[in-house]
Design a protein around this nucleic acid. Structure first.
Length: 495
RNA sequence: GCCCGUGUGGUGUAGCGGUUAUCAUGAGGCGUUGUCGAUGCCUCGACCCGGGUUCGAUUCCCGGCACGGGCGCCA
């Protein structure tokens, strides 16, 4: 029989904020959690400031993770986005009706509790073991169900049974409540923050380029077509052109964190059809210069995570332990990253007995050979010009072992996986047009691009880095879908 | 797009030409209880879809769909 919720939500009046007991705020991680209309404290504040809060009344909110006990008492584990607290409900302190509702409430329902902070009785420990540090709980005087969760849950938030990725993605809203998944996306936010912070310290300015474009910048990748009113258009596959236009416009150094859309029929652990790219472009720089920017940025991100976010890594490791997976560690890479020029990479692969020759692409199995010697981040600079797009710069006469023209394009790999491609761009319009002709393309078709270079262009360079792939490395994820909230692949457009 | 594999309670699994279809987690009920992976007892819940072979198919075969792995493709 459906239970009818009779309780009204207890909304705090403005006077409540004036109470002395409400004022202490946790400053953990420099975040200021102001009271809201629904709660006076976060659950992390109850634990962190527990000692000073003992005896004072608080109002808290959260998801009910578990409830224990029938009859006269009930214990309830409540979780919010900051932490976890046990609620103690006992006969007499609250109404029998509230107690009964608490005992019968389904997991993951949202609740609001008014109560007094108290030190929790320590759990039983084995003989000789020291008592754990004191923790705090809330003894409820008022209990409200905000929204009841239906049963059964499509996936258990706290269950230890493993869950298939497809089930998880179909129910991402619940999957995200799992501690290690939440930690993953907390880390993603941090990675973006630290990367952004670093680029700003090097003089880069954040830009936003259009994602609806009239034509493809070049052949190669497939575009998603769309209608822009009555005009055919496409979703942008890269901010490449627009980054360059801002450099031509004298912005000196720019970066963008934005989506890229690729209509490729790939279906692998590391490919998505929509992904977030970390892109930079800088004037008066060549490929070496922007590789240095990149390794400094990655070094900064890793250092900051190692210093500030071990708690999130620990949450992920707790989960990995239940799955029999090795713990991950944040190993700050040393600088500079190894540079393995294309010519040397080909030689290394040949020495391993593979049939490959100059001018061939380096595919996944070849990357395994390189990764065996360079397991971490490593750059692969100086690709043959014929393998790189027309806009990549080359220095005439800069040739490889077989006398073929090299380019100033590079990749960044981690192990076998490509993270980045970038390079110095061609800034001389005559060379650009010759490059197009060399690739059998008609310069007239690329006037929208080349015209920007006719009025003085600084030498410049840049790269694009897949955020999700970086997250895979940081968090030990084996599938890029783990690191993207709502991934878009060949067979998934929902949710 | 190609090759290989897998589809069993809500979730994750074991298994079999005839079973009362295994285990864990979960859900429901009763009891005990300052519990904390709560606990004791009881109960509930499943063989992807279509066709074929067979006395009999969840099991074998074919097709479909879905998913997973590998590859290709990939600024």
């Amino acid at each position: 029989m459906a239970r009818i919720i009779l309780y009204k939500i207890y909304v705090l009046s403005s006077d409540d904020f004036l109470l002395e007991s409400v004022t202490p705020l946790s400053m953990a991680s420099d975040t200021v959690w102001h009271p809201t209309s629904f709660r006076t404290h976060t659950l992390d504040q109850i634990q962190t400031d527990g000692e000073s809060l003992v005896g004072s009344e608080v109002t808290i909110c959260g998801f009910m993770e578990a409830n224990r006990g029938k009859g006269k008492i009930c214990f309830m584990d409540v979780r919010d986005g900051t932490g976890r607290v046990q609620i103690f409900l006992k006969q007499g302190a609250i109404s029998d009706e509230e107690l009964e509702m608490a005992q019968g409430l389904s997991r993951e329902s949202t609740v609001q509790i008014v109560g007094e902070v108290a030190q929790k009785r320590p759990p039983k420990v084995a003989e000789g073991e020291p008592n754990p540090p004191p923790t705090y709980e809330v003894v409820a005087s008022k209990f409200t169900v905000l929204a009841q969760a239906a049963t059964p849950l499509p996936l258990g938030v706290t269950d230890t049974v493993s869950i298939g990725l497809d089930t998880r993605l179909d129910n991402r809203f619940l999957d995200l409540r799992r501690a290690h998944v939440n930690a993953m996306f907390t880390l993603r936010s941090k990675v973006l923050q630290y990367g952004r912070d670093h680029l700003i310290t090097e003089g880069f300015k954040e830009i936003n380029s259009p994602k609806i474009i009239a034509s493809a910048s070049e052949g190669g990748t497939n575009l998603f077509p769309m209608m822009y009113f009555d005009t055919p258009a496409f979703l942008s596959q890269s901010p490449q052109l627009y980054k360059q236009l801002t450099i031509l416009g004298g912005m000196e150094r720019v970066f963008e964190i934005g989506p890229a859309f690729r209509a490729e029929n790939h279906d692998t652990y590391r490919h998505l059809n929509e992904f977030i790219s970390f892109d930079i472009e800088g004037a008066w720089m060549n490929d070496d210069d922007v590789m240095c920017v990149q390794e400094r940025m990655i070094h900064h991100i890793w250092s900051q995570v190692a210093e500030h976010d071990q708690d999130q890594i620990e949450i992920i490791n707790q989960y990995r332990e239940t799955q029999g997976d090795e713990a991950i560690t944040v190993d700050v890479p040393s600088l500079p990253f190894p540079r393995i020029e294309y010519c040397d990479a080909i030689k290394m692969i040949q020495d391993a007995g593979e049939d490959i020759s100059w001018g061939d692409d380096i595919d996944s199995s070849h990357c395994d050979i390189i990764a065996a010697k360079y397991p971490g981040f490593h750059f692969l600079p100086r690709w043959p010009m014929e393998m790189k797009p027309f806009y990549i710069h080359h220095i005439p006469g800069d040739v490889g072992a077989t006398g073929e023209q090299l380019s100033r394009g590079f990749d960044l790999n981690y192990g076998r996986d490509e993270m980045t491609s970038g390079g110095q761009r061609e800034h001389n319009v005559d060379v650009l047009e010759q490059n197009l002709r060399n690739k059998g393309l008609d310069p007239a078709d690329f006037a929208f691009y080349t015209d920007g270079f006719r009025y003085g262009a600084p030498p410049h360079a840049g790269w694009g880095l897949g955020v999700a792939r970086l997250l895979m490395v940081l968090t030990g994820s084996r599938n890029v879908r783990e690191t993207v909230l709502f991934p878009r692949d060949r067979s998934r457009v929902t949710p």
